[in-house]
Design a protein around this nucleic acid. Structure first.
Length: 603
DNA sequence: GCCGTTTTCGGCCCGACTGTTTTCAGTCG
Protein backbone atom coordinates (compact mmCIF):
# COMPACT_ATOMS: atom_id res chain seq x y z
CA UNK A 1 0.00 0.00 0.00
CA UNK A 2 1.51 3.37 -0.87
CA UNK A 3 2.43 5.51 2.11
CA UNK A 4 0.60 8.82 2.01
CA UNK A 5 1.24 11.99 3.96
CA UNK A 6 -1.46 11.29 6.49
CA UNK A 7 0.19 7.98 7.37
CA UNK A 8 3.38 9.79 8.36
CA UNK A 9 1.30 12.47 10.07
CA UNK A 10 -0.44 9.73 12.06
CA UNK A 11 2.90 8.34 13.21
CA UNK A 12 4.05 11.79 14.35
CA UNK A 13 0.75 12.48 16.13
CA UNK A 14 1.03 9.24 18.02
CA UNK A 15 4.64 9.95 18.95
CA UNK A 16 3.59 13.39 20.17
CA UNK A 17 0.76 11.92 22.25
CA UNK A 18 2.95 9.26 23.82
CA UNK A 19 5.80 11.67 24.51
CA UNK A 20 3.37 14.09 26.08
CA UNK A 21 1.90 11.44 28.35
CA UNK A 22 5.45 10.56 29.35
CA UNK A 23 6.00 14.19 30.26
CA UNK A 24 8.57 14.93 27.59
CA UNK A 25 9.77 18.45 26.73
CA UNK A 26 6.68 20.24 25.46
CA UNK A 27 8.59 21.89 22.62
CA UNK A 28 9.75 18.52 21.40
CA UNK A 29 6.14 17.36 21.49
CA UNK A 30 5.11 20.46 19.59
CA UNK A 31 7.76 19.82 16.94
CA UNK A 32 6.12 16.46 16.18
CA UNK A 33 2.65 17.99 16.18
CA UNK A 34 3.71 20.82 13.88
CA UNK A 35 5.28 18.33 11.51
CA UNK A 36 2.14 16.17 11.54
CA UNK A 37 0.00 19.20 10.82
CA UNK A 38 2.28 20.36 8.04
CA UNK A 39 2.24 16.92 6.40
CA UNK A 40 -1.53 16.77 6.66
CA UNK A 41 -1.82 20.05 4.80
CA UNK A 42 0.96 19.53 2.30
CA UNK A 43 -0.42 19.30 -1.21
CA UNK A 44 2.52 17.27 -2.51
CA UNK A 45 2.85 13.58 -1.81
CA UNK A 46 5.82 13.10 0.48
CA UNK A 47 6.77 9.77 -1.06
CA UNK A 48 7.02 11.28 -4.51
CA UNK A 49 9.21 14.03 -3.04
CA UNK A 50 11.56 11.41 -1.64
CA UNK A 51 11.48 9.45 -4.91
CA UNK A 52 12.72 12.46 -6.79
CA UNK A 53 15.35 13.25 -4.19
CA UNK A 54 13.80 16.43 -2.84
CA UNK A 55 15.28 17.96 0.29
CA UNK A 56 12.84 17.28 3.13
CA UNK A 57 14.75 19.66 5.43
CA UNK A 58 13.39 22.47 3.32
CA UNK A 59 9.86 21.79 4.51
CA UNK A 60 8.74 24.09 7.32
CA UNK A 61 9.26 22.53 10.74
CA UNK A 62 11.33 19.66 9.37
CA UNK A 63 14.96 19.37 10.44
CA UNK A 64 17.46 16.57 9.97
CA UNK A 65 15.89 14.33 12.62
CA UNK A 66 12.32 14.52 11.39
CA UNK A 67 13.45 14.29 7.77
CA UNK A 68 15.13 11.02 8.68
CA UNK A 69 12.00 9.76 10.41
CA UNK A 70 9.81 10.67 7.43
CA UNK A 71 12.13 8.69 5.16
CA UNK A 72 12.10 5.81 7.59
CA UNK A 73 8.30 5.64 7.68
CA UNK A 74 7.98 5.96 3.91
CA UNK A 75 10.65 3.32 3.33
CA UNK A 76 9.72 0.78 6.00
CA UNK A 77 6.21 1.66 7.12
CA UNK A 78 7.54 1.83 10.69
CA UNK A 79 9.26 4.24 13.02
CA UNK A 80 11.68 2.86 15.59
CA UNK A 81 10.95 5.63 18.08
CA UNK A 82 7.23 4.92 17.94
CA UNK A 83 7.78 1.19 18.30
CA UNK A 84 9.88 1.87 21.39
CA UNK A 85 7.35 4.28 22.90
CA UNK A 86 4.63 1.69 22.40
CA UNK A 87 6.54 -0.72 24.60
CA UNK A 88 6.72 1.89 27.36
CA UNK A 89 3.05 2.85 27.40
CA UNK A 90 -0.10 1.09 26.22
CA UNK A 91 -0.58 2.46 22.68
CA UNK A 92 -4.30 2.94 23.29
CA UNK A 93 -3.50 5.51 25.96
CA UNK A 94 -3.55 8.05 23.12
CA UNK A 95 -7.27 7.34 22.82
CA UNK A 96 -7.72 8.72 26.31
CA UNK A 97 -6.47 12.12 25.17
CA UNK A 98 -9.46 12.42 22.85
CA UNK A 99 -11.78 12.47 25.87
CA UNK A 100 -12.60 16.06 26.90
CA UNK A 101 -11.10 16.78 30.28
CA UNK A 102 -8.22 14.36 29.87
CA UNK A 103 -4.88 15.74 28.89
CA UNK A 104 -1.44 14.29 29.12
CA UNK A 105 -1.10 14.61 32.89
CA UNK A 106 -4.41 12.98 33.73
CA UNK A 107 -3.79 10.23 31.20
CA UNK A 108 -0.49 9.52 32.91
CA UNK A 109 -2.05 9.66 36.37
CA UNK A 110 -4.85 7.33 35.31
CA UNK A 111 -2.36 4.89 33.88
CA UNK A 112 -0.07 4.99 36.88
CA UNK A 113 -2.72 4.94 39.59
CA UNK A 114 -5.32 2.63 38.07
CA UNK A 115 -3.51 0.89 35.23
CA UNK A 116 -5.92 2.41 32.73
CA UNK A 117 -4.64 1.97 29.18
CA UNK A 118 -7.74 1.81 26.99
CA UNK A 119 -11.08 3.56 26.59
CA UNK A 120 -12.79 0.43 27.88
CA UNK A 121 -10.66 0.51 31.06
CA UNK A 122 -11.50 4.16 31.50
CA UNK A 123 -15.21 3.66 31.00
CA UNK A 124 -15.33 0.76 33.43
CA UNK A 125 -13.40 2.66 36.08
CA UNK A 126 -15.73 5.65 35.68
CA UNK A 127 -18.77 3.39 36.04
CA UNK A 128 -17.32 1.92 39.21
CA UNK A 129 -16.53 5.35 40.62
CA UNK A 130 -12.83 4.57 40.87
CA UNK A 131 -11.64 7.66 38.98
CA UNK A 132 -12.24 9.80 42.05
CA UNK A 133 -9.38 8.08 43.79
CA UNK A 134 -7.05 9.89 41.38
CA UNK A 135 -5.81 13.24 42.66
CA UNK A 136 -7.55 16.09 40.88
CA UNK A 137 -10.55 14.14 39.63
CA UNK A 138 -13.85 14.81 41.36
CA UNK A 139 -17.45 13.85 40.69
CA UNK A 140 -17.97 16.24 37.76
CA UNK A 141 -14.95 15.14 35.78
CA UNK A 142 -15.76 11.52 36.47
CA UNK A 143 -19.31 12.01 35.20
CA UNK A 144 -18.20 13.83 32.04
CA UNK A 145 -15.65 11.09 31.34
CA UNK A 146 -18.35 8.47 31.81
CA UNK A 147 -20.59 10.18 29.26
CA UNK A 148 -17.82 10.88 26.76
CA UNK A 149 -16.45 7.35 26.82
CA UNK A 150 -19.92 5.88 26.41
CA UNK A 151 -20.44 7.91 23.25
CA UNK A 152 -17.01 7.16 21.90
CA UNK A 153 -17.19 3.42 22.51
CA UNK A 154 -20.52 3.23 20.73
CA UNK A 155 -19.65 5.23 17.63
CA UNK A 156 -17.85 3.40 14.82
CA UNK A 157 -14.64 5.08 13.78
CA UNK A 158 -14.92 7.49 10.88
CA UNK A 159 -12.13 9.22 8.99
CA UNK A 160 -11.63 12.74 7.79
CA UNK A 161 -12.12 13.45 4.11
CA UNK A 162 -8.54 14.70 3.83
CA UNK A 163 -7.09 11.34 4.85
CA UNK A 164 -9.44 9.32 2.66
CA UNK A 165 -8.77 11.65 -0.28
CA UNK A 166 -5.01 11.25 0.01
CA UNK A 167 -5.30 7.48 0.15
CA UNK A 168 -7.85 7.35 -2.65
CA UNK A 169 -5.82 9.51 -4.99
CA UNK A 170 -2.58 7.63 -4.30
CA UNK A 171 -4.27 4.28 -4.90
CA UNK A 172 -5.95 5.48 -8.08
CA UNK A 173 -2.57 6.52 -9.43
CA UNK A 174 -0.87 3.30 -8.42
CA UNK A 175 -3.58 0.95 -9.65
CA UNK A 176 -4.03 2.80 -12.92
CA UNK A 177 -0.48 1.70 -13.83
CA UNK A 178 -1.27 -1.99 -13.38
CA UNK A 179 -1.49 -3.86 -16.71
CA UNK A 180 -5.04 -4.47 -17.82
CA UNK A 181 -6.53 -1.68 -15.71
CA UNK A 182 -8.61 0.54 -17.96
CA UNK A 183 -9.98 2.91 -15.36
CA UNK A 184 -9.96 3.19 -11.59
CA UNK A 185 -12.05 5.54 -9.48
CA UNK A 186 -13.06 6.14 -5.89
CA UNK A 187 -16.69 5.53 -5.03
CA UNK A 188 -18.68 5.38 -1.81
CA UNK A 189 -19.05 8.18 0.67
CA UNK A 190 -15.75 9.73 -0.36
CA UNK A 191 -17.06 10.30 -3.85
CA UNK A 192 -20.29 11.63 -2.41
CA UNK A 193 -18.11 13.91 -0.28
CA UNK A 194 -19.68 13.05 3.02
CA UNK A 195 -17.92 15.02 5.75
CA UNK A 196 -16.34 11.82 7.07
CA UNK A 197 -15.96 8.35 5.60
CA UNK A 198 -16.22 4.97 7.31
CA UNK A 199 -14.28 3.10 4.64
CA UNK A 200 -12.92 3.70 1.17
CA UNK A 201 -14.59 2.07 -1.83
CA UNK A 202 -12.82 1.85 -5.17
CA UNK A 203 -13.93 0.49 -8.52
CA UNK A 204 -11.72 -0.55 -11.41
CA UNK A 205 -12.56 -1.44 -14.99
CA UNK A 206 -10.21 -4.25 -15.92
CA UNK A 207 -9.42 -6.62 -18.73
CA UNK A 208 -9.48 -10.34 -18.08
CA UNK A 209 -6.45 -11.63 -16.19
CA UNK A 210 -5.33 -8.23 -14.95
CA UNK A 211 -3.15 -8.70 -11.84
CA UNK A 212 -4.88 -5.73 -10.19
CA UNK A 213 -6.04 -7.66 -7.12
CA UNK A 214 -2.58 -9.09 -6.49
CA UNK A 215 -1.09 -5.66 -6.79
CA UNK A 216 -3.76 -4.16 -4.55
CA UNK A 217 -3.10 -6.49 -1.65
CA UNK A 218 0.61 -7.17 -2.21
CA UNK A 219 1.78 -3.86 -0.86
CA UNK A 220 -0.38 -4.23 2.25
CA UNK A 221 0.86 -5.89 5.37
CA UNK A 222 -0.32 -9.51 4.98
CA UNK A 223 -2.05 -9.51 8.33
CA UNK A 224 -4.30 -6.75 7.16
CA UNK A 225 -5.75 -8.37 4.07
CA UNK A 226 -9.33 -9.12 5.05
CA UNK A 227 -10.26 -10.88 1.83
CA UNK A 228 -9.03 -11.34 -1.71
CA UNK A 229 -10.90 -12.80 -4.63
CA UNK A 230 -10.93 -12.36 -8.39
CA UNK A 231 -13.26 -9.36 -8.37
CA UNK A 232 -13.09 -8.04 -4.86
CA UNK A 233 -10.51 -7.48 -2.13
CA UNK A 234 -10.44 -5.67 1.21
CA UNK A 235 -7.47 -4.45 3.17
CA UNK A 236 -7.01 -2.42 6.34
CA UNK A 237 -4.35 0.28 6.25
CA UNK A 238 -2.09 1.29 9.13
CA UNK A 239 -4.41 4.21 9.81
CA UNK A 240 -7.22 1.71 10.40
CA UNK A 241 -9.01 2.78 7.23
CA UNK A 242 -10.50 -0.17 5.36
CA UNK A 243 -10.23 -0.08 1.58
CA UNK A 244 -12.40 -2.22 -0.69
CA UNK A 245 -11.60 -2.65 -4.35
CA UNK A 246 -14.00 -4.16 -6.88
CA UNK A 247 -12.92 -5.06 -10.37
CA UNK A 248 -15.49 -5.22 -13.17
CA UNK A 249 -15.40 -5.56 -16.96
CA UNK A 250 -15.34 -2.39 -19.02
CA UNK A 251 -18.97 -2.69 -20.10
CA UNK A 252 -20.17 -2.79 -16.47
CA UNK A 253 -18.01 0.01 -15.13
CA UNK A 254 -20.69 2.72 -15.05
CA UNK A 255 -23.23 0.49 -13.32
CA UNK A 256 -20.64 -0.69 -10.81
CA UNK A 257 -19.38 2.82 -10.13
CA UNK A 258 -22.96 3.97 -9.58
CA UNK A 259 -23.74 0.99 -7.39
CA UNK A 260 -20.68 1.37 -5.17
CA UNK A 261 -21.01 5.13 -4.96
CA UNK A 262 -24.45 4.81 -3.35
CA UNK A 263 -26.00 5.96 -1.25
CA UNK A 264 -27.88 2.83 -0.47
CA UNK A 265 -31.15 4.77 -0.35
CA UNK A 266 -30.44 6.31 -3.77
CA UNK A 267 -29.66 2.88 -5.21
CA UNK A 268 -32.84 1.38 -3.83
CA UNK A 269 -34.87 4.18 -5.37
CA UNK A 270 -33.15 3.66 -8.74
CA UNK A 271 -33.74 -0.08 -8.66
CA UNK A 272 -37.37 0.47 -7.81
CA UNK A 273 -37.69 2.84 -10.73
CA UNK A 274 -36.07 0.24 -12.99
CA UNK A 275 -38.49 -2.42 -11.83
CA UNK A 276 -41.46 -0.18 -12.52
CA UNK A 277 -40.18 0.19 -16.08
CA UNK A 278 -39.84 -3.57 -16.49
CA UNK A 279 -36.05 -3.39 -16.15
CA UNK A 280 -33.50 -4.73 -13.74
CA UNK A 281 -30.65 -2.66 -12.34
CA UNK A 282 -27.64 -4.18 -10.61
CA UNK A 283 -23.92 -3.52 -10.43
CA UNK A 284 -23.41 -5.06 -13.87
CA UNK A 285 -25.85 -2.91 -15.80
CA UNK A 286 -29.45 -2.24 -16.70
CA UNK A 287 -31.17 -5.31 -18.14
CA UNK A 288 -34.34 -5.93 -20.10
CA UNK A 289 -34.80 -9.62 -19.61
CA UNK A 290 -31.38 -11.14 -20.19
CA UNK A 291 -30.18 -8.33 -22.45
CA UNK A 292 -27.99 -5.56 -21.06
CA UNK A 293 -29.22 -2.22 -22.37
CA UNK A 294 -26.91 0.11 -20.40
CA UNK A 295 -24.08 0.13 -17.89
CA UNK A 296 -20.80 1.19 -19.47
CA UNK A 297 -21.18 4.70 -18.05
CA UNK A 298 -23.22 6.11 -15.19
CA UNK A 299 -24.98 8.45 -17.58
CA UNK A 300 -26.11 5.48 -19.66
CA UNK A 301 -27.72 3.94 -16.59
CA UNK A 302 -29.56 7.12 -15.68
CA UNK A 303 -30.62 7.58 -19.29
CA UNK A 304 -32.03 4.04 -19.43
CA UNK A 305 -34.08 4.92 -16.37
CA UNK A 306 -35.35 8.11 -18.00
CA UNK A 307 -33.23 10.39 -15.83
CA UNK A 308 -30.52 12.96 -16.43
CA UNK A 309 -27.14 12.39 -14.78
CA UNK A 310 -27.28 13.05 -11.04
CA UNK A 311 -24.11 14.37 -9.42
CA UNK A 312 -22.66 12.01 -6.78
CA UNK A 313 -22.96 14.59 -3.99
CA UNK A 314 -26.74 14.66 -4.47
CA UNK A 315 -27.27 10.91 -4.29
CA UNK A 316 -28.78 10.74 -0.83
CA UNK A 317 -32.44 10.18 -1.67
CA UNK A 318 -33.20 13.66 -0.43
CA UNK A 319 -35.28 14.77 -3.39
CA UNK A 320 -32.69 14.43 -6.14
CA UNK A 321 -34.68 11.91 -8.19
CA UNK A 322 -37.81 14.05 -8.11
CA UNK A 323 -35.69 17.05 -9.06
CA UNK A 324 -34.17 15.07 -11.92
CA UNK A 325 -37.62 14.09 -13.17
CA UNK A 326 -38.81 17.68 -13.10
CA UNK A 327 -35.59 18.94 -14.72
CA UNK A 328 -34.86 21.06 -11.68
CA UNK A 329 -31.56 19.58 -10.52
CA UNK A 330 -29.22 22.29 -9.25
CA UNK A 331 -26.22 23.26 -11.36
CA UNK A 332 -23.83 22.73 -8.47
CA UNK A 333 -21.08 25.15 -7.57
CA UNK A 334 -17.55 24.14 -8.62
CA UNK A 335 -14.15 25.12 -7.35
CA UNK A 336 -13.58 27.19 -10.49
CA UNK A 337 -16.61 29.33 -9.59
CA UNK A 338 -14.86 30.70 -6.50
CA UNK A 339 -13.38 34.12 -7.15
CA UNK A 340 -12.03 34.76 -3.70
CA UNK A 341 -11.52 33.48 -0.18
CA UNK A 342 -12.95 35.34 2.79
CA UNK A 343 -11.12 33.80 5.75
CA UNK A 344 -7.35 33.47 6.05
CA UNK A 345 -4.62 34.13 8.61
CA UNK A 346 -1.12 35.50 8.49
CA UNK A 347 1.87 35.51 10.77
CA UNK A 348 0.35 38.47 12.61
CA UNK A 349 -1.77 35.99 14.55
CA UNK A 350 -1.44 32.22 14.26
CA UNK A 351 -0.83 31.92 10.53
CA UNK A 352 2.57 30.86 9.32
CA UNK A 353 3.13 33.15 6.35
CA UNK A 354 3.30 36.82 5.53
CA UNK A 355 0.62 38.95 3.91
CA UNK A 356 2.63 38.97 0.71
CA UNK A 357 3.08 35.20 0.62
CA UNK A 358 -0.58 34.53 1.26
CA UNK A 359 -1.61 37.01 -1.42
CA UNK A 360 0.74 35.43 -3.95
CA UNK A 361 -0.47 31.93 -3.11
CA UNK A 362 -4.13 32.93 -3.43
CA UNK A 363 -3.45 34.58 -6.76
CA UNK A 364 -1.60 31.49 -7.97
CA UNK A 365 -4.76 29.52 -7.25
CA UNK A 366 -6.82 31.76 -9.46
CA UNK A 367 -8.42 33.84 -6.71
CA UNK A 368 -9.13 37.52 -7.38
CA UNK A 369 -9.50 38.61 -3.77
CA UNK A 370 -8.48 37.39 -0.35
CA UNK A 371 -9.78 38.59 2.98
CA UNK A 372 -7.12 38.77 5.67
CA UNK A 373 -8.87 37.79 8.89
CA UNK A 374 -6.41 37.35 11.73
CA UNK A 375 -7.62 36.68 15.25
CA UNK A 376 -8.72 39.26 17.82
CA UNK A 377 -7.03 39.71 21.21
CA UNK A 378 -9.13 37.27 23.22
CA UNK A 379 -7.36 34.43 21.44
CA UNK A 380 -4.12 35.15 23.25
CA UNK A 381 -2.75 31.80 22.20
CA UNK A 382 -2.97 32.92 18.61
CA UNK A 383 -1.40 36.34 19.25
CA UNK A 384 -4.72 37.96 18.46
CA UNK A 385 -4.55 41.53 17.18
CA UNK A 386 -5.65 44.34 19.47
CA UNK A 387 -7.06 47.56 18.04
CA UNK A 388 -3.63 49.11 17.61
CA UNK A 389 -2.07 46.18 15.77
CA UNK A 390 -5.18 45.79 13.63
CA UNK A 391 -4.99 49.47 12.66
CA UNK A 392 -1.38 48.92 11.61
CA UNK A 393 -2.36 45.88 9.58
CA UNK A 394 -5.09 47.89 7.85
CA UNK A 395 -2.47 50.45 6.81
CA UNK A 396 -0.11 47.73 5.61
CA UNK A 397 -2.84 46.12 3.51
CA UNK A 398 -3.71 49.47 1.96
CA UNK A 399 -0.07 49.99 1.07
CA UNK A 400 0.30 46.45 -0.24
CA UNK A 401 -2.84 46.68 -2.38
CA UNK A 402 -1.32 49.67 -4.12
CA UNK A 403 1.52 47.42 -5.28
CA UNK A 404 -0.29 44.12 -5.84
CA UNK A 405 -1.26 43.00 -9.28
CA UNK A 406 -3.95 40.43 -10.03
CA UNK A 407 -5.34 40.14 -6.52
CA UNK A 408 -6.90 42.44 -3.97
CA UNK A 409 -6.56 41.96 -0.24
CA UNK A 410 -9.62 42.75 1.81
CA UNK A 411 -9.23 44.09 5.31
CA UNK A 412 -10.90 41.83 7.82
CA UNK A 413 -10.75 40.23 11.23
CA UNK A 414 -11.85 36.96 12.74
CA UNK A 415 -13.25 38.59 15.83
CA UNK A 416 -14.13 36.53 18.87
CA UNK A 417 -17.76 36.53 19.87
CA UNK A 418 -17.62 36.95 23.63
CA UNK A 419 -19.85 35.00 25.95
CA UNK A 420 -22.43 37.79 26.09
CA UNK A 421 -22.45 38.25 22.30
CA UNK A 422 -20.29 41.37 22.24
CA UNK A 423 -17.40 41.47 19.79
CA UNK A 424 -13.82 41.40 21.00
CA UNK A 425 -12.73 44.72 19.42
CA UNK A 426 -14.00 48.31 19.61
CA UNK A 427 -16.42 49.53 16.96
CA UNK A 428 -14.09 52.31 15.85
CA UNK A 429 -11.54 49.92 14.38
CA UNK A 430 -14.13 47.42 13.10
CA UNK A 431 -15.66 50.21 11.01
CA UNK A 432 -12.41 50.61 9.12
CA UNK A 433 -12.61 47.04 7.81
CA UNK A 434 -14.07 45.62 4.63
CA UNK A 435 -15.62 42.73 6.51
CA UNK A 436 -15.94 41.38 10.03
CA UNK A 437 -15.93 37.62 10.41
CA UNK A 438 -17.26 36.64 13.82
CA UNK A 439 -16.53 33.32 15.49
CA UNK A 440 -16.85 31.43 18.74
CA UNK A 441 -13.62 30.09 20.24
CA UNK A 442 -14.64 29.48 23.84
CA UNK A 443 -17.64 28.61 25.96
CA UNK A 444 -18.89 25.99 23.52
CA UNK A 445 -20.93 24.49 26.32
CA UNK A 446 -23.51 27.21 26.84
CA UNK A 447 -27.13 26.12 26.96
CA UNK A 448 -29.01 26.16 23.67
CA UNK A 449 -30.88 29.34 24.61
CA UNK A 450 -27.79 31.19 25.78
CA UNK A 451 -25.71 30.13 22.80
CA UNK A 452 -28.48 31.21 20.43
CA UNK A 453 -28.79 34.58 22.17
CA UNK A 454 -25.03 35.00 22.04
CA UNK A 455 -24.95 34.47 18.26
CA UNK A 456 -28.04 36.57 17.54
CA UNK A 457 -26.65 39.42 19.63
CA UNK A 458 -23.33 39.28 17.80
CA UNK A 459 -25.07 39.32 14.42
CA UNK A 460 -26.95 42.45 15.48
CA UNK A 461 -23.67 44.33 15.64
CA UNK A 462 -23.73 46.91 12.85
CA UNK A 463 -20.38 45.73 11.49
CA UNK A 464 -21.02 41.97 11.55
CA UNK A 465 -20.53 40.37 8.10
CA UNK A 466 -20.02 36.61 8.28
CA UNK A 467 -20.51 34.00 10.99
CA UNK A 468 -17.45 31.74 10.72
CA UNK A 469 -17.55 27.98 11.42
CA UNK A 470 -20.93 28.48 13.09
CA UNK A 471 -21.10 25.36 15.25
CA UNK A 472 -17.34 25.34 16.02
CA UNK A 473 -17.30 21.56 15.73
CA UNK A 474 -14.01 19.74 15.23
CA UNK A 475 -14.55 16.43 13.51
CA UNK A 476 -13.49 13.52 15.71
CA UNK A 477 -12.63 15.91 18.54
CA UNK A 478 -15.45 18.17 19.56
CA UNK A 479 -19.17 18.20 18.81
CA UNK A 480 -20.68 21.42 17.58
CA UNK A 481 -22.30 23.96 19.91
CA UNK A 482 -25.97 23.63 20.53
CA UNK A 483 -28.00 26.56 19.19
CA UNK A 484 -31.15 27.26 17.23
CA UNK A 485 -29.79 27.10 13.68
CA UNK A 486 -33.00 28.10 11.89
CA UNK A 487 -33.18 31.25 14.03
CA UNK A 488 -29.58 32.10 13.27
CA UNK A 489 -30.17 31.61 9.56
CA UNK A 490 -33.27 33.80 9.68
CA UNK A 491 -31.30 36.44 11.56
CA UNK A 492 -28.66 36.37 8.84
CA UNK A 493 -31.36 36.98 6.26
CA UNK A 494 -32.89 39.85 8.23
CA UNK A 495 -29.52 41.48 8.83
CA UNK A 496 -28.23 40.81 5.31
CA UNK A 497 -25.18 39.03 6.66
CA UNK A 498 -23.73 35.66 5.73
CA UNK A 499 -22.79 32.24 7.02
CA UNK A 500 -19.50 30.51 6.44
CA UNK A 501 -18.89 27.02 5.22
CA UNK A 502 -15.43 26.50 6.67
CA UNK A 503 -13.60 24.24 4.22
CA UNK A 504 -11.01 22.88 6.63
CA UNK A 505 -11.44 19.09 6.61
CA UNK A 506 -11.53 19.06 10.41
CA UNK A 507 -14.42 21.54 10.43
CA UNK A 508 -16.68 21.42 7.34
CA UNK A 509 -18.95 23.75 9.22
CA UNK A 510 -21.70 24.58 8.17
CA UNK A 511 -22.45 21.05 7.13
CA UNK A 512 -24.42 19.99 4.06
CA UNK A 513 -27.84 20.08 5.71
CA UNK A 514 -27.29 23.51 7.16
CA UNK A 515 -26.12 24.77 3.76
CA UNK A 516 -29.35 23.62 2.25
CA UNK A 517 -31.30 25.39 4.97
CA UNK A 518 -29.38 28.58 4.27
CA UNK A 519 -30.10 28.26 0.56
CA UNK A 520 -33.80 27.76 1.24
CA UNK A 521 -33.80 30.96 3.30
CA UNK A 522 -31.88 32.88 0.63
CA UNK A 523 -28.82 33.39 2.83
CA UNK A 524 -25.55 33.35 0.92
CA UNK A 525 -22.78 31.04 2.10
CA UNK A 526 -19.10 31.98 2.15
CA UNK A 527 -16.96 28.95 1.26
CA UNK A 528 -13.73 29.83 3.03
CA UNK A 529 -10.44 28.03 3.60
CA UNK A 530 -9.50 29.45 7.03
CA UNK A 531 -5.98 29.01 5.67
CA UNK A 532 -3.16 29.35 8.19
CA UNK A 533 -0.59 28.72 5.47
CA UNK A 534 -0.64 28.94 1.71
CA UNK A 535 -1.06 25.21 1.08
CA UNK A 536 -4.33 25.31 2.99
CA UNK A 537 -6.03 27.19 0.17
CA UNK A 538 -6.25 23.76 -1.43
CA UNK A 539 -8.74 22.78 1.28
CA UNK A 540 -11.36 24.83 -0.57
CA UNK A 541 -12.10 21.62 -2.49
CA UNK A 542 -13.55 20.05 0.66
CA UNK A 543 -15.78 23.05 1.22
CA UNK A 544 -16.98 22.78 -2.36
CA UNK A 545 -17.84 19.14 -1.66
CA UNK A 546 -20.06 20.05 1.30
CA UNK A 547 -21.62 22.96 -0.60
CA UNK A 548 -22.53 20.62 -3.44
CA UNK A 549 -24.04 18.19 -0.95
CA UNK A 550 -26.07 21.15 0.27
CA UNK A 551 -27.36 21.72 -3.29
CA UNK A 552 -25.59 25.09 -3.52
CA UNK A 553 -25.27 26.70 -6.92
CA UNK A 554 -22.84 29.49 -7.77
CA UNK A 555 -25.55 32.04 -7.07
CA UNK A 556 -25.95 30.72 -3.52
CA UNK A 557 -22.31 31.35 -2.68
CA UNK A 558 -21.02 34.74 -1.56
CA UNK A 559 -17.49 34.41 -2.89
CA UNK A 560 -18.47 33.53 -6.43
CA UNK A 561 -19.25 37.24 -6.75
CA UNK A 562 -17.04 39.70 -8.52
CA UNK A 563 -15.15 42.00 -6.19
CA UNK A 564 -17.52 44.85 -6.97
CA UNK A 565 -20.62 42.80 -6.22
CA UNK A 566 -19.01 41.41 -3.09
CA UNK A 567 -18.20 44.89 -1.80
CA UNK A 568 -21.78 45.95 -2.33
CA UNK A 569 -23.07 42.95 -0.44
CA UNK A 570 -20.60 43.47 2.38
CA UNK A 571 -21.37 47.15 2.63
CA UNK A 572 -24.88 46.16 3.64
CA UNK A 573 -23.30 44.56 6.69
CA UNK A 574 -20.68 47.17 7.47
CA UNK A 575 -22.92 50.06 8.43
CA UNK A 576 -21.52 52.35 5.78
CA UNK A 577 -22.23 53.14 2.17
CA UNK A 578 -20.49 51.15 -0.56
CA UNK A 579 -17.91 52.94 -2.66
CA UNK A 580 -20.07 53.31 -5.76
CA UNK A 581 -23.70 53.38 -4.82
CA UNK A 582 -25.74 52.84 -1.72
CA UNK A 583 -27.55 49.54 -1.75
CA UNK A 584 -30.32 49.23 0.79
CA UNK A 585 -30.15 46.72 3.56
CA UNK A 586 -30.00 43.48 1.66
CA UNK A 587 -33.12 41.67 2.80
CA UNK A 588 -33.09 39.47 -0.24
CA UNK A 589 -29.38 39.26 -0.73
CA UNK A 590 -29.53 37.25 -3.89
CA UNK A 591 -31.66 39.77 -5.73
CA UNK A 592 -29.43 42.57 -4.53
CA UNK A 593 -26.29 40.84 -5.70
CA UNK A 594 -27.61 40.11 -9.13
CA UNK A 595 -28.93 43.60 -9.60
CA UNK A 596 -25.49 44.99 -8.84
CA UNK A 597 -23.51 42.56 -10.93
CA UNK A 598 -25.10 41.24 -14.09
CA UNK A 599 -21.99 39.14 -14.59
CA UNK A 600 -22.62 37.11 -11.48
CA UNK A 601 -22.50 33.41 -12.30
CA UNK A 602 -26.04 32.09 -12.21
CA UNK A 603 -26.11 28.69 -13.78
C1' DG B 1 13.07 18.92 17.80
C1' DC B 2 13.35 23.18 14.96
C1' DC B 3 14.86 27.72 14.14
C1' DG B 4 17.79 31.71 13.52
C1' DT B 5 21.53 33.54 13.90
C1' DT B 6 24.52 35.39 18.13
C1' DT B 7 27.22 29.50 13.67
C1' DT B 8 25.88 27.30 19.45
C1' DC B 9 22.34 27.53 22.07
C1' DG B 10 18.38 29.92 23.96
C1' DG B 11 13.76 30.52 22.72
C1' DC B 12 9.91 28.39 21.20
C1' DC B 13 2.00 30.87 21.94
C1' DC B 14 -0.45 32.47 26.71
C1' DG B 15 -4.69 33.63 29.13
C1' DA B 16 -9.26 31.92 30.71
C1' DC B 17 -11.90 28.59 32.68
C1' DT B 18 -13.13 24.55 35.42
C1' DG B 19 -13.18 21.68 39.08
C1' DT B 20 -10.66 20.68 42.51
C1' DT B 21 -9.14 22.42 46.08
C1' DT B 22 -8.53 25.80 50.00
C1' DT B 23 -4.47 28.31 46.74
C1' DC B 24 -3.97 25.86 42.27
C1' DA B 25 -3.27 22.28 38.58
C1' DG B 26 -4.89 20.74 34.43
C1' DT B 27 -7.14 21.49 30.22
C1' DC B 28 -8.41 24.01 26.36
C1' DG B 29 -8.14 26.84 22.34
Amino acid sequence: MPIVNSDVAGVFEEIADLLEVQGANSFRVRAYRNAAHMLGELGTNIKSMIDRGADLDALPGIGPDLAGKISEVVRTGHCALLDELRTQLPPAVTELLKIPGIGAKRARALHQALGIGTLQDLHRAAEQGRLRTVQGIGPKIQQSILEATAIRLKAPRRYKLSLATQVGEALCLELSRVPGVLEVQVAGSLRRQRDTVGDLDMVAAVERDSPVMDRFVSAADGRHVLSKGRTRASVVLASGLQVDLRAVPRESFGAAWLYFTGSKAHNIALRQRAREAGLKLNEYGVFRGERRIAGDTEASVYLALGLPFIEPELREQLGEIDAALSHSLPALVQRSDLRGDLHAHTRESDGRESLEAMAAAARARGLEYLAVTDHSPRLALAHGLDAGRLAQQIDRIDALNARLDGIVLLKGIEVDILEDGRLDLPDAVLRRLDLVVGAIHHRFDLSRDKQTDRLLHAMDHPCFSILAHPTARLIDERPGCDFDLPRVIRKARERGCFLELNAHPARLDLNDIACRMAKDEGVLVSIASDAHSSVEFDNLRFGIGQARRGWLEPGDVLNTRSLGALRSLLSGTMDKPPPAQRVGAAVNVRTTAESVDPGTPSR
